[in-house]
Amino acid sequence: MDKILSNNEIRTIITALGAGTSQEDINLEKLRYHKAIIMTDADVDGSHIRTLLLTLFYRHFPQLVERGHVYVAQPPLYRVSKGKEEHYISTEEDLTRFFVEKAVASYTVTIPSLKKTIRGLELSRALETLQRYERLLARLARKGYTEALLLNLFGAGLSREIFSGAEKIGALKHSVEQAGFECGELRFDEEHSLYEFTAKSEANPHPALIAHSLHHAPEFLTAQALHEKLKDLDRPPFVVANGESEAKAQDRRALLDLLLDSVKAKYHIQRYKGLGEMNPEQLWETTMDPAKRRLLQVRVDDAVEAGGLFSVLMGDAVEPRRKFIEENALNVTNLDI
């Protein structure tokens, strides 16, 4: 505790709260503020400081967390401006949505092979679906499921039946191999009496497990559903027009780039890494003004899990921490290099 109190910032926090110095002598009656809002920079070092502060509150003033006095501020991640027009945007998803709307407002997309033109709401929906699909693909690709492999599997119409008979799964394996993948031996999962195998390719050397569990995985199912919705966009090329000029896109990704890049180019995008990048008025407007700010209230759902997590992440032992990082490495959402 003495060591904790030797940190100036922590001393200031404890003084400001005014409710005592530790969980033993805490007196919530005396609490001077009912919202302790953690506001750190939007970069990964900010994330780190946030975890440290959460640890402080959780370990030393658990009552504050339990009573819902601890909040996390949500400063915007982006400022998008064009001339006098400016917008604050809080997540990457919102940012793309913003550009999709801008793109839809000025462009139409024609699919010559279907003699079909999409515009307005339809276009915006299609683009959003496309983006979700692309994001999902990227996530699946990290686990070894490349788009080429997935398309094969979508087509195969996976079912429990396929995985339960050696013959059927043999056929599936054969078709995957035909598509240029290198497959591992068939394995029999005795517990579920189902077959499985792995597939890899040069583009993705990380072997992907093709098993019944995949057919149930939400990511896979969602990707499959989205793919279904995107049928129209499976027929490139596309022609993008805005009344004055036209441009051709050879595939879906190029279409997305073409539409969004042309809009993006018109705007100035600033990604906030530090709170110090904002003027005082901007900070007030976006993050601090009680009328407009967005807060996350920190709650404890499962005290046991939380306690264990804090021990792993903040404890002295390195090995469990390393294990946690390895197990969760693929779930990381915000890599900042």
Binding site: T51, R299, E305, L335
Partner: peptide, 12 residues
């Protein structure tokens, strides 16, 4: 939840 928040922030 504190678990979710710390997990995400820490992993980032």
């Amino acid at each position: 939840t504190i678990e979710e928040e710390i997990k995400k922030s820490y992993l980032d």
